[in-house]
Computed example of a mutant assay.
Amino acid sequence: MSVGVTAEAEEYHSKDFEWETLKQEIENNPSLHYHFLPFPPPPSSSSSSSSSQQQQQTLNDSDAWRKFHNRHSAGKFFKERRYLLKEFPELVSCGESSKLLEVGCGNGSTILPILRGNKDIIVYACDCSSEILERAKEFVETSDVASVKNRFFPFYCDFCTTGFPEWLACNYCRGSRPQKQHDCFSDIEEKNRPQLTYLSRESDSSIAGVDFVTLIFTLSAVPLQGMPRALRDCYSVLKPGGLLFFRDYGLYDMTMLRFEPEQRVGFREYMRSDGTRSYFFSIDVVRNLFVDAGFIEVELEYCCVKSVNRRNGKSMQRVWVHGKFKKPL
């Protein structure tokens, strides 16, 4: 790994300040009190009506992210996440033909450094935007990655609204719930799923699960009530003993504090002007979500990084949550 990549990795996994100190500072600032106010519950309605409203909102969220990707399809909006090789060294040291599922791959900013860092790993990558998948495929194929044709398989999957396709199922999940296999992947009826579009996969045959799943700034874009199902889906495609690598926005991150009161759509949940949403995680929330889904916690901590905006010279306090979780053997 080059000196530049090592420096970048250390920058993104450091503790320039203590999270508890930042918490006290933010919560003692009267101008930011609206971030911590209880969020009023939605008006009471029948369970069927509430379920329908949630499904409609989820569809709206997916549509907003598709439009976002279309606007930023050139790829300049994202930088390659080379620091992930330092964060999760298992992606470099894993055995030959290990399989990874990247959830919400975007333009390939996570995929490329992983494919470069391990010439034997096989990557399956999904997103809710066919356009951005084509762009990711183009970026990977025109890169300097060796033997990419047989190691990169992008496919369409709307993580917010449906579970993963049947061919991703691990053998353990197939064997433990044979009466209705698709329950492992989604609480939404099979007939309501959109037709999956395979961009480079030649066969629908089962791959018997994956060794790793990466959730990198993806779960925060899922409505809070949909996160438990999303994590159960991830659990179901992992082989026993497999690892899920997590990185996402942490509570009191600078971007959270920039949201205005009217942009709050839930407790610690916000919506941008373009319709995309973001949730800001505490350690406790992440722990509860993953443990409830069946995972074993391996690592879980805040990454607190102080960076400087090169254009205006202002210091920015960034907070991310770093996690590593294991599916029991």
Score class of each variant (00 low, 15 high):
residue 2 S to M: 07
residue 5 V to I: 14
residue 5 V to F: 10
residue 11 E to N: 15
residue 13 H to F: 12
residue 14 S to P: 07
residue 14 S to Y: 09
residue 15 K to I: 09
residue 17 F to D: 05
residue 20 E to G: 04
residue 20 E to A: 09
residue 20 E to Q: 08
residue 24 Q to N: 11
residue 28 N to D: 11
residue 30 P to C: 06
residue 30 P to K: 06
residue 32 L to R: 02
residue 34 Y to L: 07
residue 35 H to Y: 05
residue 35 H to C: 10
residue 40 P to L: 06
residue 40 P to N: 05
residue 43 P to W: 05
residue 45 S to W: 04
residue 45 S to H: 08
residue 50 S to A: 15
residue 52 S to M: 09
residue 53 Q to V: 08
residue 53 Q to K: 12
residue 56 Q to M: 08
residue 57 Q to V: 03
residue 61 D to N: 14
residue 62 S to T: 05
residue 68 F to E: 01
residue 80 E to P: 03
residue 81 R to M: 12
residue 84 L to I: 15
residue 85 L to C: 11
residue 88 F to N: 01
residue 89 P to M: 06
residue 90 E to K: 05
residue 93 S to K: 14
residue 93 S to C: 13
residue 94 C to P: 06
residue 96 E to C: 12
residue 98 S to M: 08
residue 98 S to K: 09
residue 100 L to W: 01
residue 105 C to E: 03
residue 105 C to Q: 08
residue 106 G to M: 07
residue 106 G to L: 03
residue 106 G to E: 03
residue 112 L to P: 03
residue 114 I to T: 03
residue 114 I to K: 01
residue 118 N to L: 01
residue 119 K to I: 05
residue 120 D to G: 11
residue 121 I to Y: 01
residue 124 Y to I: 03
residue 125 A to L: 12
residue 125 A to N: 07
residue 125 A to P: 08
residue 133 L to C: 07
residue 134 E to Q: 15
residue 138 E to Q: 12
residue 141 E to K: 13
residue 141 E to S: 15
residue 142 T to I: 09
residue 143 S to I: 09
residue 146 A to P: 11
residue 156 Y to K: 13
residue 158 D to K: 00
residue 160 C to D: 06
residue 161 T to A: 14
residue 166 E to N: 13
residue 167 W to L: 14
residue 173 C to W: 01
residue 174 R to N: 11
residue 176 S to F: 11
residue 178 P to A: 07
residue 179 Q to A: 12
residue 181 Q to N: 11
residue 183 D to N: 12
residue 189 E to N: 14
residue 192 N to S: 13
residue 195 Q to R: 14
residue 196 L to Y: 13
residue 198 Y to P: 07
residue 199 L to S: 05
residue 203 S to D: 11
residue 206 S to H: 12
residue 206 S to V: 07
residue 208 A to R: 09
residue 213 V to R: 01
residue 216 I to W: 01
residue 218 T to G: 03
residue 219 L to N: 02
residue 224 L to C: 11
residue 225 Q to G: 10
residue 229 R to N: 13
residue 230 A to F: 02
residue 231 L to F: 02
residue 232 R to C: 14
residue 233 D to I: 04
residue 233 D to G: 14
residue 242 G to E: 01
residue 244 L to M: 04
residue 244 L to H: 01
residue 245 F to I: 02
residue 254 M to C: 15
residue 256 M to G: 02
residue 257 L to Y: 11
residue 258 R to K: 15
residue 261 P to C: 10
residue 265 V to F: 07
residue 265 V to M: 10
residue 266 G to F: 02
residue 271 M to F: 07
residue 274 D to F: 00
residue 277 R to G: 00
residue 278 S to K: 01
residue 279 Y to A: 06
residue 288 N to I: 00
residue 296 I to W: 03
residue 296 I to H: 05
residue 298 V to H: 07
residue 302 Y to P: 00
residue 305 V to A: 13
residue 308 V to S: 09
residue 309 N to P: 05
residue 312 N to Y: 04
residue 312 N to C: 05
residue 315 S to T: 15
residue 317 Q to P: 10
residue 319 V to F: 03
residue 320 W to G: 13
residue 321 V to E: 00
residue 325 F to P: 00
residue 325 F to I: 02
residue 326 K to W: 04
residue 328 P to M: 12
residue 328 P to D: 07
residue 328 P to Q: 10
residue 329 L to W: 10
